[in-house]
Design a protein around this nucleic acid. Structure first.
Lengths: 342, 342
DNA sequence: CTCCAAAATGACAAGGTTGTCAATTTCGGT
DNA sequence: ACCGAAATTGACAACCTTGTCATTTTGGAG
């Protein structure tokens, strides 16, 4: 079963297209690469030939000749859980659509910069994108600059003006959650922080504070406890908060996994949610849907994060100094069964 | 910061190595490709030159010239959830280690064979691996054979003797779970099946039956209900089972997600696990750890599945008729908090 | 020591694309 | 209709590796 339009076994080359369209192979190359200096009429004729032969450029020949490799890199630290997996899925889908490949490198330990350097010197990459905490690692960023590799940061810590990054509006999303809890009559709301150093940890805390202020509730520092985005920190956070002399009636955990920890602690101590305690998470992935009760949470478009990162890198690939505007993706407040009127 | 040993900007080529070692580039090529006909002494000299220049062969030039592309493919249907993500992770890691790339293709709808054919005619692949249900799709397998692409099936339905596939021993694992429940004193054990057509669905059911037999418990068909590996089917399964005039004291769901559904149904109907009902899952991923109570489940080495698939493909790439032995990976019974003595 | 087969090595081309730069065409202004 | 500048197109080399096939070297038998 051969694909239609082929005369012999081997796939059509740029020369076949050129012959059919009656132009030189260089002009075909120009069309394929979307270069500007081709007359519309010529372009159309070439495109028709491309379609009729279902020509696809040979990735290897291109990679060999051009300076671009058509390979992008994803750097991250912790390959567990929904978050990186979804990023990866989104990125892969978009890469494939556009003929790019994706290599993944997991960075670990103290010398991330060195690992990055080794990685880059072995693989010629057209661009790199990173999730926290890698995207906030100074030595990694330095190496990337030295190698002249363009990069996109996902949810970075302190993005500089004009730097290319992608994020959601953690501040606003967090504020929405707390506003919702306040609207349900809650006035003592616990907050379990995310991983220290993560940009979103800080932004979500600010959103929390801002919402309290808007609701004319005084901030009680004892209601804000440490955490790091995992199940165990949810358990510990709940333990601390519920041991207070005046415990909270609602807890906003740093993310869904931590919220699951809160639920778990509550259940095992005879508290039922949402009757005795309202719980909110953040992420909106699988976890929020399989725990009982289903979490009220913020849905992040995580796949879209990965997809957007790749889109930006591909758009920039070649066109060196494209304006680098940050991309802020939309979020959605999901009302689950884990929150109730006080 | 350049990598050590490079004189100018561009990386060393096979010619640089040849000059340094005092041989022809062809001989270097032979060493790099581990071909047999190189004298030990020569090989050593070349290897030293390779090391001192930290030469790495250009993937594109190789791909262009050689018949092999160094690209493997992963075909699957449903890119959601832990399972495919973990497969992908394991596969990607091993690919990178060995200089291979990985492209991912999601097949959907009725014409999987046609999609596969289109995919293969566009990309020269050195091998393909598939998860269920793609790996059981007859038209896909036929297309793969027609194209002469070697493939590995993960958890296939009816593997033929001598065919290359990877799986865990679902039968034994399931039996272990039921044996454990029996050892806790349970005698009425509900079983929620997995997705129809999946090999593991059948194997786990057989394991269930075998264990009952071993425990001298008569099979009650009403305790076995349909399902399809998702949360909702766990909810529905629990509803059906718990509505029986003589309901089960323990339920073994098809996988963790379905088990989470069972827990959810139980909780919302005033039953607490494990006191009123023991629940078991299957997979051992994130879900089993974030629900309350933590699930008793079977841990599958999912990442290892992906890694092994790639390992087999790479080993076979080139050496056409390597003996194709099935690979059975080990599983582990994880005792959680969702099961208790009856 | 010579000869021969087998083993080891080398010379050269080919693979499909894009960069460079030269050649040709187009088009606005006279 | 003609000129010159700008736009468009084309010829050819180069990218790096491996397959083919010829050549050289090795090592053992005579």
């Amino acid at each position: 079963m051969k694909s239609p339009g082929k005369k012999n076994g081997s796939p059509p080359t740029i020369i076949d297209v050129a012959n059919l369209a009656g132009v030189s192979m260089k002009t075909v190359s120009r069309v394929v690469n979307n270069e500007a200096t081709v007359r519309a009429k010529t372009r159309e004729r070439v495109q028709k030939a491309i379609d009729s032969l279902s020509y696809q450029r040979n990735v290897f020949a291109r990679g060999l000749r051009a300076d671009r490799s058509l390979v992008l890199g994803l750097l991250y630290e912790n390959p567990q859980g929904d978050y990186p997996a979804d990023i990866l899925h989104g990125a892969l889908a978009y890469c494939r659509e556009h003929g790019y490949h994706l290599v993944v490198e997991v960075l670990r330990g103290p010398d991330m910069g060195g690992q990055t350097a080794r990685f880059l010197s072995q693989t010629k990459l057209d661009g790199v994108f990173m999730t926290p905490p890698v995207c906030d690692n100074a030595s990694v960023l330095k190496v990337l600059k030295n190698f002249g590799v363009s990069y996109v940061r996902i949810s970075p810590n302190k993005p500089k003006r004009g730097e290319q990054y992608i994020a959601i509006d953690d501040f606003a999303a967090s504020k929405e959650v707390i506003d919702y809890l306040i609207s349900l009559g809650h006035r003592r709301i616990g907050f379990i922080k995310g991983m220290p150093g993560h940009a979103s940890t800080q932004a979500r805390l600010e959103g929390y504070k801002s919402a309290l202020e808007g609701g004319e509730i005084d901030l009680d520092e004892s209601l804000v406890v440490e955490g790091n985005f995992d199940f165990e920190s949810g358990v510990l956070g709940a333990e601390t908060l519920l041991a207070l002399s005046e415990p909270p009636t609602a807890i906003f955990a740093g993310n869904d996994e931590a919220a699951a920890g809160v639920l778990s602690y509550a259940h095992s101590h005879g508290l039922s949610a949402p009757q005795d305690l309202s719980v909110c998470g953040f992420d909106g992935g699988t976890i929020s849907k399989v725990v009982w009760p289903k979490l009220t949470t913020v849905m992040q478009p995580i796949r879209l994060l990965g997809e957007s990162a790749v889109r930006l890198l591909i758009a920039r690939d070649g066109n060196e100094h494209k304006a680098a505007k940050p991309v802020i993706l939309p979020h959605t407040l999901i009302i689950g069964d884990s929150t109730a009127r006080r």
